[in-house]
Design a protein around this nucleic acid. Structure first.
Lengths: 209, 209
DNA sequence: TAGATTGTTAATCGATTAACAATC
DNA sequence: TAGATTGTTAATCGATTAACAATC
């Protein structure tokens, strides 16, 4: 649902507003800040209940905590990182630093110079231990930052042990085989090529003129 | 347009098929592999011309190179990286390694222990030089991997020197102020919270039962 | 009371799916 | 010719926008 994908954005903007000391905001103002329409914001927020007040607007602190609760930001789901290269490292630090709803409790890799070391206090184990580790620790979520070629096998192991939530930076399409897996794909290559398309289209325009 | 966002995906899958030695494919088969409908694929591809052949399907090599041309993958746009921390580093290597349409020619940072070093042969300069560097090298595209707080100022400098294409990993909303900037936002925090929402929603379901 | 702004319904728009004639 | 599969049109679905009555 498109609304749900916008909730984290609302949450971010409300956090900023709150930090800036703003206590109330109208859908119109928020729309301008976010680049949406006021109508859409009212429609979106009403999916989850009447948070606003006619003639007044929305109470920033109220709305912020309400959306936080809908998203479940106060959770601390234990998660694992598979692939501890540059991207994996960045993601791990990312997950640890911001008040994230995930707690990275282990990293996995096959590189012998990484196994046994740690990533900002997260231990890096050998990938052969993924299955037993996830089983023992009742892991539900995994971050996949490994090469696409190795992903199929890793996902099979994770799924078998009950992992159903994936933040997937690889190009392996998890949902084809595992219909009930919940997957957030982050395909940086696709963003790159989309940007490239725009530059290319612009070029063509200019050449025509 | 939704179709354009799918082009990079088609391109990826066709590349894989080509590597696997597949020479032709029907919309039906491709749909299954990609998790789309055959109808959608035919509709999408027809936006750019009749690449298929009735009764036969699509020629993989043909379609691959046609989409590559539409995307403009053979370009090599010079680009800069702003923010050379863990994420920036991962992105830089990313852009360099895969046959990417961008060529990262410089990185910028304010950290004195980074300035003067290099990132896989890309020189890291001090952020104060961004403007003059981009001007001199006619840079059109920038990758933003710096803290959100510093981004406003950096974008102002880049925009002033003619940069109009941004791959933005920060939470600064470029298009609010710069309407004609073309921006690909990659908001990992949002993906994280969306995933969290799903886990949370599942939990609630279970508690109700 | 008057002004502001929401909640909510209706209208519009765009994207996806279904169907089928065209054609290889 | 018969079978397969596209190109393309029409139908459906969902999401966005506009409008306005309700109400603080």
């Amino acid at each position: 649902m498109a609304v749900i994908r916008r909730l984290p954005k609302y949450y971010r903007y409300l956090s900023d507003l709150s930090d800036a000391g703003v206590t109330r905001i109208s859908s119109k103002e928020l729309a301008m800040k976010m680049g949406l329409t006021a109508s859409q914001i009212r429609q979106d927020l009403n999916c989850f209940g009447g948070f606003g007040q006619q003639g007044y607007g929305y109470d920033v602190a109220n709305l912020y905590s309400a959306i936080g609760e809908i998203l479940g930001v106060d959770n601390s789901y234990p998660a694992v990182l598979v692939g501890c290269g540059n991207l994996g490292k960045a993601i791990a630090l990312f997950v640890q630093s911001s008040q994230s709803p995930f707690k990275m409790i282990a990293g996995f890799d096959v590189a012998s110079d990484l196994v046994g070391t740690s990533l900002n206090s997260i231990p890096i184990l050998h990938s052969s231990e993924i299955g037993s580790f996830c089983c023992k620790n009742e892991i539900k979520a995994a971050f996949l930052c490994l090469p696409t070629e190795s992903t199929k096998l890793v996902v099979a192991q994770l799924y078998e042990k009950g992992v159903r939530y994936f933040c997937n930076f690889t190009h392996y399409n998890i949902n084809i085989k595992y219909k009930d897996a919940v997957v957030e794909n982050v395909h940086i290559t696709d963003s790159l090529l989309t940007l490239c398309y725009s530059m290319n289209a612009k070029n063509c325009e200019e050449n025509e003129a």
